[in-house]
Nucleic acid binder design. Structure first.
Lengths: 237, 237
DNA sequence: GTCTATATGTAGATAGAC
DNA sequence: GTCTATCTACATATAGAC
């Protein structure tokens, strides 16, 4: 697991000064945000105190407040910081596919363009991007936080849904919406529960899969088959 | 949404006294556990204080400690309290199908036997069972809590996986494990995010689905198609 | 920009009266 | 069994020195 992926590894968000180094305050700010990102990803918002963050970042307590503002602000800032990079990766993946395949675009292609940027991020080998991926998985089903961060994710989701509709204009919209939400949750769950998948595999006598490409392939296969079957009009039970 | 389902509505876990009424202490205990269940489901473990629970249950602070023990104990007790009922419903559903269909059992049947008892519970119209369903969805992907409650869920999951293997003995075990975990997450996500599905449906110009049977049908359809596609050996990307 | 010090509130837990 | 009262620890936030 966790092969390095150059795409995400070098990503840093502080602006370098003219001389190429970060301003001192800027570097501290990054340290604080990075520490908060890791801890929030691991323990959730309420499970982390500002003192924990200060300790993890190796700064004093009030430095966290200075750079991060209130605890709520700090949490939102962490989302904001990387959202654009992820969104851009997804948009570019979709645009590239559209350019290359045109009308031959399939649902599988669209799913890949949505899933793979996130997957690469989660398994990039960069612990901050991995933490961010976990954090997204954590808040996506959280009714308290999702409304406050949806602005970062919903627009791109709309684009992908539009692409799905273009592939099959007759698909019932409600089923499409549900298949999409379920697919997104499935994607997030693979990152947050690959430990469970590994455990369960071993319990069944198989080796625990370790290759991200394997997880991607099975996940995308699952969602592709799921979409197809869910969109077929039929009412059971 | 939320039609009453008699199966779960009358469920109460305190033992009645010989005269048919609950002992006073027992009734208080139930009040405390019910309040904790609702609040933990809504706000998570760290998001709820013992004082919150006391207020919700309309008892004094120390009564919560008296009946619930430590906060950790209280949380685990809530899980324990209803786990057996849910497990029994699932086992019975599977046994009934096996008796009725024998070797003609399908993956779809097995999925239904796993999903429907949970779905009925979540939408039973009883707010405590609904809260319990939300609580399960909340901790299922929580690395801190899942190890402490898996004993309540893993045995039954093993039974269902065994049934899946019986249907298709050649299915690769690792893919089976992953398809199962993803299906379970999908099931849980429908309960915790049906608001998002509804919102997204409206955004696409459809009405927001309100019928639990519709959610069940689309979900099971999705998982069925997902399983089938995920188990096929093929490696993309 | 970063520190120490502290104001102010709330957390979990329990002792002891009734 | 249930209450009031309180212990001790830790929370967020910020004022003010350097």
């Amino acid at each position: 697991m966790t092969p390095t992926n150059a795409r995400y590894a070098p990503e840093k968000h502080a602006k370098p000064k003219a001389d190429g180094r970060l301003a001192r305050g800027e570097a501290t700010r990054e340290k604080v945000l990075d520490a908060a990102e890791r801890l929030f990803a691991e323990h959730g918002f309420e499970g982390v105190s500002i003192r924990d963050i200060a300790r993890e970042a190796v700064v004093s307590l009030s430095v966290v407040g200075f750079h991060g503002g209130s605890k709520d602000d700090l949490f939102l800032t962490i989302f904001q910081r990387r959202a654009e990079t992820l969104n851009r990766a997804r948009s570019e993946a979709l645009a590239e596919l559209r350019a290359r395949k045109g009308a031959a675009l399939t649902r599988r292609d669209i799913l890949e363009a949505y899933v793979l940027p996130y997957s690469r991020m989660a398994w990039s080998g960069d612990r901050q991007w991995a933490a961010y991926a976990k954090l997204i998985a954590r808040i996506a089903t959280d009714e308290r936080w999702y409304p406050r961060v949806r602005e970062f994710f919903d627009p791109i989701a709309q684009d992908f849904l539009a692409a799905m509709i273009a592939v099959d204009p007759d698909a019932p919209r409600d089923r499409l919406a549900m298949a999409f939400v379920v697919s997104v949750t499935a994607m997030l769950s693979v990152v947050s529960s690959n430990m469970r998948i590994a455990t369960l595999s071993r319990a069944l006598g198989a080796e625990a899969p370790t290759d991200p490409a394997w997880y991607n392939a099975v996940l995308i296969g699952f969602c592709e088959g799921g979409f197809e079957n869910a969109l077929r009009v039929s009412d059971g039970t």
